[in-house]
Simulated scan of single mutants.
Amino acid sequence: MEATNRVTQLLQIQLPVIQAGMVWASGWKLASAVSNAGGLGIIGAGSMYPEVLKQHIIDCKAATDKPFGVNLPLLYPDIEAHIQTIIDYQVPVVFTSAGNPKTYTSRLKQHGITVVHVVSSSKFALKAQEAGCDAVVAEGFEAGGHNGREETTTMVLIPAVRQHISIPLIAAGGIATGRQMLAAMALGADAVQIGSRFVCSEEASSHLAFKQAIVAAREGDTQLSMKKAVPVRLLKNQFFEQVQQLEWAGASEQDLNQLLGHGRAKKGMFEGNLEEGELEIGQVSALIQDIQPAAAIVQEIWEECKQAAREVSLLLN
């Protein structure tokens, strides 16, 4: 089970399937399971203190001899400590997001680290390429968690970005199945990054109650909110309704941040408080039917992608 293209060669992985580094869900257990299955597992550093990240990297290295990565939001308050940990422990791949890729890309690459930056538009994809990034993740409006302000859907974003850059392109946002993976690659992507589907894996550190809520979700159960602060797609619950009421009343960024407070995402996604917590998940939650081992998810997506390619080939003959 192996595919060869620009992304698999760049990342030294078997399959062009990348697990997103989601906060409160992507620890070493999930990352190592995805890497062992042939994809690229990623540790989500955004919700980790420096010492916690260090231990997750150590544990991931003990659990897999395959490449894995760390997702690093550039707005993280103690980012220098994370950068040094990544360098000290020779993490092979870093996915950066939420910031200027120029800030750390050259420093990371000096240590032999492959750098991929997450973008929401062609303009930012070009900036990432100019900053020396090895690849970009173009993430569409359908994605869960923190989102771009442009609200460009994946089906529009991927071909637009493909026209503007020459480095490898990874598609994200609204992708959870093999058929969606094939569609993204037909639009110009070299690989896909998948978040929501892996939140519902057995190895994800997200709370079981949150996983069950995702499985129960249907179309329209998520919505982008907090646009005046940091746009984020949420599963609708009591907290979401409070945000919506504030937004309808013309709330300021300060008002929204005050409601958000501290620890709201942890309360929802990690501790399982489904009413008062922030439940970040993508639109594609409507297609997720069960909780599976990460390896089964990788295999199912890849096999379905190949089957869909065969079916499409027959349609075109």
Rank of each mutant, 00 (worst) to 15 (best):
Ile58Phe: 10
Gln9Thr: 15
Thr103Arg: 08
Thr64Gly: 01
Arg162Gly: 14
Tyr49Phe: 14
Ala171Trp: 02
Ile170Asn: 00
Asn147Cys: 14
Lys211Met: 04
Gln223Gly: 14
Val137Arg: 02
Ala183Lys: 00
Lys306Ile: 13
Ser97Pro: 04
Leu53Gly: 04
Val7Phe: 07
Val232Asp: 02
Ser32Val: 11
Gly144Ile: 01
Asp255Glu: 15
Val215His: 09
Ser166Trp: 00
Gly38Pro: 00
Glu303Cys: 06
Thr152Ser: 10
Phe240Ser: 11
Glu304Ser: 13
Lys66Met: 09
Thr152Met: 13
Leu259Glu: 07
Gly174Pro: 01
Ala135Tyr: 07
Gly188Glu: 09
Gln299Leu: 02
Ala186Thr: 13
Lys61Asp: 08
Asn317His: 13
Phe270Asp: 13
Asn237Ile: 14
Thr222Arg: 03
Glu300Cys: 05
Leu234Phe: 14
Leu108Gln: 07
Trp248Met: 14
Pro168His: 10
Pro159His: 04
Ile79Ala: 02
Leu157Phe: 05
Asp221Ser: 13
Cys60Gln: 04
Glu51Met: 06
Ala37Lys: 04
Met22Phe: 09
Gln129Asp: 11
Phe240Gln: 13
Gly263Lys: 13
Lys29Thr: 02
Leu274Arg: 04
Leu169His: 05
Glu202Gly: 03
Val91Cys: 03
Glu271Pro: 03
Gly140Asn: 01
Met181Pro: 11
Ala176His: 09
Asp88Cys: 03
Thr114Asn: 14
Ala286Gly: 05
Gln14Ser: 15
Leu30Phe: 11
Ile288Lys: 04
Ala160Tyr: 06
Val52Trp: 07
Asn237Gln: 12
Leu316Ile: 15
Ser26Ile: 09
Asp78Gly: 07
Asp290Glu: 10
Leu208Cys: 08
Ser313Trp: 10
Gln90Asp: 15
Ala251Glu: 09
Leu169Ile: 06
Ala33Val: 10
Val52Asp: 10
Ile291Tyr: 03
Ile194Arg: 02
Arg218Lys: 15
Ile13Asn: 06
Gly99Thr: 04
Ala128Cys: 04
Val115Tyr: 00
Lys127Ala: 15
Gly39Gln: 08
Ser252Glu: 08
Asn257Ser: 10
Thr85Tyr: 03
His164Leu: 09
Ala204Gln: 06
Met22Tyr: 02
Pro77Met: 06
Asp190Gly: 08
Ser26His: 09
Ala176Val: 12
Glu219Lys: 06
Ala189Gly: 08
Arg310Gln: 14
Glu253His: 00
Ala81Ile: 05
